[in-house]
Every structure is written in C-alpha cells, then in structure tokens.
C-alpha cells in the first residue's frame, strides 16, 4: 500500500465521520429527547423568521451545496479506488471542499445565533437578551457547588429578568485535568449542558437540592422524603432544613417539576442556595443551528420552551416564598 492510498483511506474515514457527525448533530434533540412535543405552529413561525433573513438563507444554500459536493467526492473516491486510478486530484478537491464547508458552517452558526436567536428571544420575552460570546461567570458556578473541576467554559449567555428576578442562563462545560502514567494530560468532562441562575428576592438561609435520582449513585447526607410518590420515585431531595423544604416544595411545585421532565424528557437538577436558584440541565447546547431550517427552527422552539417550563417552576416557588415569611 503506498502513501497516497493510506492517505486516501484516512481522508475517506474523516469525511464519513464529518458527514455522520453533522447529520446526527442536527437530529440530536429529536433523537435524545424523543418525548419532546414540539408545537408545529411555533416551528413554522421560527422557520419564517429564518427564511426572512436573506444572508442566512444564502449561507445555508451554499452550505447545502458544498455538502452535496462532498458526498459526490466520497463516491468518486470509492470509484477511483476500485479502478486503481491515481486519486491525488480528487483528494485535494475534497480537502479544499471540507475546509470551505467547515468555514461556511461556522459562519452560518454564528449568523444564526446573532440574528435569529436574539430576535426569537425578544419575540418570546422582551426582557431577555442574548450574547453568544459571554457565559455564566465561573464564580457564580462555583457558588452553586455542583462539583469540583479544573477547567470551565461557558458561552451563549441569555440574560434579563424572569418574573422580576434577575436571570442568566448559558451553556457550561466543566472538566478535570488528569495525567496518565506516561505524563500525558487528559481532560475529562464532568458536566456539559445548560445552567441557569435566578436571583430570588428572598433569602431562605438554607439550601435545597433536587436531583434526578438517575444522576446519583448513592444517597447523600440530609436526604428528605417528600410526600409525593411520583416525585420521590424520580427525584432525590436534600436540605439542611426539612420543614422549610416541605413549605417550599408544595404539591404545586413538585407537580411543575414533574411536568417539566415529562414535557422535555431532560434530566435536571435544581439547587436553591440562600437567595439563588440554580438549574442544571443535562442537554445539548441550546440555540444551536441545525443542518436544515426546519431543524434550526425546532431547536429554537425547544430551547425557548425549556426556558418557559423553567419559568413555571420559578413562578410556583416564588408564589410560595412571597406568600409566607421564611
């Protein structure tokens, strides 16, 4: 086997991987969260929003065209291999097309986030704004005390007010750094998902931690039994103040938490620490551009519905907190 053949095989593998990855990424939401019921009218609404953006539409068309060319190149590579023809020309072409595709796809994602997501969020709630280059500050995440980590990255910040409470939400990734026996550094992802932080107008001087029990292996200290069987079957609750937890986790609140999981199919944690509520969702990045306008619109609806469901939980907690002295 000569060098060109080996190089062709590697390139072929990379292209197949890229295509599969791109296609599966756009279907991630529907595949992973098969319980999600997406409102078709809303999808249509956001699809129109994307279609009306001419520059984005052009980028999308170019992107689709290059993807088709790449697929043709793959077929040609196979044919060239089978006929033992020198594949150098087609390899160079495929490499160039792959680079162009990656650049155009990145441009599409960036444009989508800047123009469409901001508009969609304003459309949902005028109080919310979006900045793809910012994220939840590291110190805020440390305050939540979810886990220990060495590296922290956060982007796609949504900020504003929800029910008159300051609110921020963004994609977060935490990693720990480990060195193996040969001295190589490995980065192990501890958490990758979405985190939201809401400042309450009341300090509970305590903590309440609600976690989906599939995310936890062992019972920890301060476990509390909530008097809602369907809730305890799915969630573990921890707190240093049992009475306060029972006051806050009224049947209304527990039902809204269960409703959110039923609706979105996402596993999540809620942590109330003094005057702050943290939500941590084990999901893909929100507001990602899909491989088609339809998928991008679905992702938008999905992301906004997640915020809306979270709003319902916050509303039911705030109702309890506002009604009584803590």
């Amino acid at each position: 086997m000569n060098v060109v053949t080996i190089f062709s095989i590697i390139l072929f593998g990379i292209i197949i991987f890229l295509i599969i990855r791109t296609l599966t990424k756009s279907f991630k939401f529907s595949a992973k969260n098969n319980k999600v019921q997406i409102d078709n009218n809303k999808v249509l609404e956001y699809k129109n929003l994307i279609d009306n953006n001419k520059s984005l539409k052009t980028t999308d068309k170019i992107r689709a065209f290059i993807l088709i060319l790449l697929l043709i190149c793959v077929v040609i590579i196979i044919i060239v291999f089978l006929n033992k023809i020198n594949p150098i020309f087609i390899i160079i072409l495929t490499v160039i097309l792959s680079i162009i595709y990656i650049v155009i796809n990145a441009k599409y994602t960036k444009d989508f986030k800047i123009s469409i997501v901001s508009e969609a969020l304003k459309h949902y709630d005028a109080n919310l704004s979006y900045n793809p280059s910012l994220g939840i500050p590291r110190n805020d995440y440390i305050y939540a005390d979810f886990e220990n980590f060495d590296r922290y990255t956060s982007e796609d910040l949504i900020s504003g007010n929800i029910l008159n409470c300051p609110f921020i939400m963004s994609d977060v990734k935490t990693e720990i750094v480990e060195k193996d026996n040969e001295g190589r550094t490995n980065y192990i992802t501890v958490f990758s998902g979405v985190v939201a932080k809401i400042n309450l107008n009341k300090n509970i001087n305590s903590f309440i931690y609600i976690i989906n029990n599939s995310l936890r292996l062992f019972d920890g200290k301060y476990k509390i039994n909530i008097d809602n069987e369907s809730f305890t079957q799915r969630y573990d609750t921890y707190s240093d103040n049992e009475v306060l937890t029972m006051r806050i986790l009224t049947p209304n609140v527990t039902t809204s938490i269960l409703d959110m999981e039923n609706k979105t199919g996402i596993k999540f944690e809620i942590k109330i620490s003094n005057d702050i509520i943290f939500f941590r969702f084990y999901t893909n990045d929100l507001f990602d551009a899909g491989q088609s306008t339809q998928k991008s619109a679905e992702n938008l609806v999905y992301s906004i519905e997640l915020i809306d469901d979270m709003k319902n939980i916050i509303a039911s907690i705030l109702e309890v907190l506002q009604d009584t002295e803590v």
Binding site: V243, M246, R247, T324, E325
Partner: peptide
C-alpha cells in the same frame, strides 16, 4: 402566616 405554614409542613 409563617407559623401556620410551618405547622402545615411539619
């Protein structure tokens, strides 16, 4: 209100 809520919770 607070004490009633505490009684209900307990």
């Amino acid at each position: 209100e607070k004490v009633e809520s505490e009684i209900a919770a307990s």
